[in-house]
Simulated scan of single mutants.
Amino acid sequence: MNLTEHYNQLYKTSAEAISAGKYSIDSELKNESDSRFGITLLIRPNEEVKANIQAFISELKKIEPEQYFYPDSDIHITIMSIISCSDQFTLNQIAPKEYIEIICRSLVEVEKIKIHFKGITASPSALLIQGFPSDETLNNLRNKLRENFKKSGLQQSMDSRYSIFTAHSTVMRFQEKLHDPKRLIEVAEKFRDYDFGEFDVKNIELVYNDWYQRKETTKVLGDFGLR
């Protein structure tokens, strides 16, 4: 299944579920003792794209103000969840330098990554911006990371939940009962094919993060510039 088909199927299934009131609420969002942390390699969109995303978020806030919305600082695309978030993991279990070395080795042949954010999709508990890489560079990098980390013997849990191949950004999560699920989907429909913009990836970050990538709990372990 290609990315467009994947996003379309995800939207169709989720929009129907949300409209029918069969959505999911993330009860952990307000849990102040949530201790799920992990290690992630990620991309952050540029300022222009983030401004376009916030215009979408502003529309959503008008009808569902009590939900969880991602601030600019937290919007990201996951390249690879190297160690999935868990309450069993803490940073002192690993040597970040060893992870940085493998990432550097995996990036040797990567020259340019370009992402186009166009349209939105949904899950039963969230709304997401659809990301489309311009070529196979991002997936090639993911495969190189898989290969190099598996050879290394370092602690990792890549692809343990699912094998990542998308380039989406989550921007809204449901933390309360929705006021008007059908109205929410009507607003989502307006942005279904909206062009949020395209950007060249200038740098990639390795971070120690919580489940929601909140800036206040994130620690940057490595920053890798692309040519």
Rank of each mutant, 00 (worst) to 15 (best):
S35C: 08
S19D: 04
R214V: 04
G38N: 13
V187C: 07
F117Y: 15
D74R: 06
N148V: 07
S19I: 06
A95G: 04
K219N: 09
G225L: 08
K150C: 12
T170I: 06
V110E: 03
H179G: 11
F132M: 10
F56N: 06
V110W: 00
L42N: 09
Q93N: 10
A167W: 01
M1R: 07
V201N: 03
N46C: 12
L107K: 05
I82H: 09
S33G: 06
R192F: 10
N2T: 12
Y23S: 02
E32T: 14
K112C: 10
A17H: 04
L107E: 09
G225A: 13
T137Q: 02
T13F: 06
D223Q: 10
E5N: 14
S84C: 08
S24C: 03
I57Y: 00
V108G: 02
Q175G: 10
T170C: 05
G119Y: 02
R105W: 00
N140L: 14
N2R: 01
Y208T: 06
H168P: 01
E189G: 03
N140C: 09
S33E: 15
G131H: 07
I82L: 11
P71M: 09
K151C: 03
L91D: 11
R105M: 07
I103N: 00
N148W: 03
P71E: 12
I79A: 00
E5T: 15
K215G: 03
S73R: 13
F117A: 13
R105V: 00
H76C: 03
E136F: 01
T166E: 12
P96E: 15
K118W: 06
T137H: 01
A122Y: 02
N143D: 14
E48L: 09
D74H: 05
I185H: 03
G119K: 02
Q88H: 11
Q155H: 12
D210H: 01
R173K: 14
C85I: 08
I129V: 15
N2D: 14
K182Y: 00
H116G: 00
F196A: 01
F37W: 15
V49K: 04
E216I: 06
Q67M: 06
E5K: 13
K150N: 15
A95R: 08
F199L: 10
Q130K: 15
R146T: 01
K144S: 13
T90C: 08
Y7W: 09
A51E: 12
S86C: 07
L41S: 06
K215Y: 08
Q9E: 14
Q67D: 09
I94H: 05
G153I: 08
D74I: 04
F117M: 13
V207P: 07
L141N: 03
V207T: 14
Q175Y: 03
G197E: 04
